[in-house]
Write a protein that binds this DNA or RNA. Structure first.
Lengths: 348, 348
DNA sequence: CTGAAAGCGCTTACAG
DNA sequence: CTGAAAGCGCTTACAG
């Protein structure tokens, strides 16, 4: 009755800078703030008519619950974090998207962080993120085991693309892919194989071990060739050592290296696959743009991202004593051989 | 004196589930919570010795300020949102990274959202994000002009890769790129050019208009060929229409289309560039994997992402009455022609 | 089914 | 330079 606008049709929200709060709705409907809160978020505990009035008024005022206030009270931010070493690494695209998708479906928000491959920066970033988030996915983390465990003790944490005892991990079934690759190459008659290594990382070590074991079991010779960097340039630069090693097939740690090697072969007129067969890994975007197109191992990164967030959601429910059983069943995370043009019969 | 552990060396923080608050620090140091808050965030307003004690204790307890509490009070979440239509679109990689980088440098956090190219979903997502964020970057938004303006009225908002009167926009200087491409092709003797169109979007329309005007000015014939979808498949499928049009050079809306066309040419034994010259746009990851490598226009997406966040930061300072002048100068956002193997002299 | 009250952790005038 | 007090918007036992 005091400073209300004369025009009764004008809603208060329109000439207000601050967004409306539950108190505005309470005032407008005549109910208490408690009832408004319940009508909006625990609709079962409120009369149907009351609920209707309140929800309509809320919609009319353009009410949105203040996430900070809720978070302060409940300790839940409605947010997950995802930390990757390199946002532009094509390997992570599908993973990020998968994670974003599941997060969104759960009505939550995904916060993205990048560590630029620096383990120290990763610890800082992870620690910071963890304070403002309900759970964290660490992708291909380079953190020391103990650091990971310490972080995992603070809040739900999932390790994507790395396994660590006592910490929830989502890892593709790489063994199947590696075995398939070696068998493919051996089946084509190759008897001398090289592995072009990646960085010092859990994934790279595990891969080499797998390849080594499989090759030995198949009774073909296997050597490791250190590749300066896991880039196209790195792959390019390794051609001399590949040729010197006298192998006829090369398994690269990743597609980027394989593509670099492919380019070097073209430049040096080394026929692929006639003289040298090349296999990549990951099936990144663009790996079928090359001539010949790259034979590679497809890792289901999308499902890994989805799965990681699902595990996070599962952990949250668990903490609340909710039903854990409703956790969606794991998508299969098996690697798959994709045969294209860069592999062929061994030269005779 | 009650349930304290006997071992005096054990810090309280260690056996506590909840993270420490300023009250824990206050208790430990004997100062009031107000002083702790000041020592931590307004170091100038507190005695040097006091500040030292408090900061040390905070570090020892592993204190981190509760972002929700601060946000509730100040209305600032320390967070920016970035909304893209498709996270996996390689065009956005560098943009996302650039935005993430500047956001991180400013001590803030980037929240990522994806709209799957759906304008309706985009409005919902943008509106939701806007409530929990200090500012929002909309990338290549498909929203109606008025919707964008309404959102911009709520909080600082920047439009990346789209221009709209009255809303802060960060757009590359596409004209330079288009002119350079047309001149490049005309310089090679081509007299009949086609533009393979993209989606119905601001960017696509602007591009076509530019190409059209330039071609007319150079007195070469220009036609528009509708491409079903802006994908490799779309490019592939358009080869028949390209051949039927009788042109000798094709400017594709983007690299994906160009790469598809390139693949179709290889399959159909249409020599590139001898019979047909092909130009892409954007210089996405992998556009140099093809044979021949793709001639294209490089758009500085990284700087666009950085710039967008800088503008957001600038808007925030403005609102606070801070010094706006310190806004970093714009990086040049000019497009640049990248000549590779897919363009050559016109057939005679 | 509904309301009054307390409190989440922090910041910020206001005093001193 | 430092402290007591109020309040940001919301949720949740506790009564009724």
């Amino acid at each position: 009755v005091t400073d209300q606008p004369v025009d009764g049709r004008q809603t208060p929200a329109l000439d207000r800078q601050q967004p409306p709060t539950i108190y505005d709705i309470a005032r407008a409907t005549g109910f208490s703030a408690s009832t408004v809160s319940r009508a909006l978020h625990k609709p079962g505990r409120v009369g149907a008519a009351t609920r209707g009035t309140i929800q309509e008024t809320a919609a009319a005022l353009g009410y949105r619950t203040n996430t900070s206030a809720r978070a302060l009270l409940t300790g839940r931010t409605g947010t997950f974090g995802l930390l990757v070493s390199d946002i532009t690494n094509p390997v992570f695209f599908d993973l990020i998207r998968g994670a974003e998708q599941v997060t969104g479906q759960a009505g939550r928000t995904l916060v993205l962080g990048e560590t630029r491959g620096d383990a120290e920066l990763e610890l800082t970033a992870a620690s910071r993120l963890l304070t403002s988030v309900d759970g964290l996915v660490l992708v291909a983390s380079r953190l020391a085991d103990d650091d990971v465990r310490r972080l995992a003790a603070r809040k739900p944490l999932v390790l994507a693309n790395r396994a660590l005892d006592g910490v929830t991990s989502v890892v593709p079934d790489a063994a199947a892919g590696v075995t398939a690759v070696v068998d493919h190459v051996v089946g084509l008659g190759h008897r001398a194989i090289a592995f072009l290594t990646g960085p010092d990382s859990w994934v790279s070590d595990a891969r080499w071990q797998q390849i080594f074991d499989t090759a030995v079991a198949r009774d073909v010779s296997i050597v490791e060739i250190r590749c300066g960097s896991t880039t196209v340039e790195g792959g390019r630069g390794s051609l001399p050592r590949v040729l010197a090693a006298g192998v006829t097939a090369v398994l690269a740690y990743n597609d980027l290296i394989a593509i670099g090697l492919l380019q070097a072969c073209r430049d040096e007129a080394v026929a692929v696959p006639e003289r040298l067969s090349i296999v990549g890994h990951d099936d990144i975007f663009g790996s079928d743009f090359t001539t010949p197109a790259l034979t590679t191992v497809r890792i289901p990164f999308g499902p890994i991202g989805e799965q990681s967030v699902r595990r996070l959601l599962g952990r949250l429910d668990e903490n609340e004593g909710d039903d854990v059983g409703r956790l969606a069943p794991s998508a299969p995370l098996g690697a798959e051989l994709v045969v294209r043009g860069s592999t062929g019969p061994a030269p005779t």
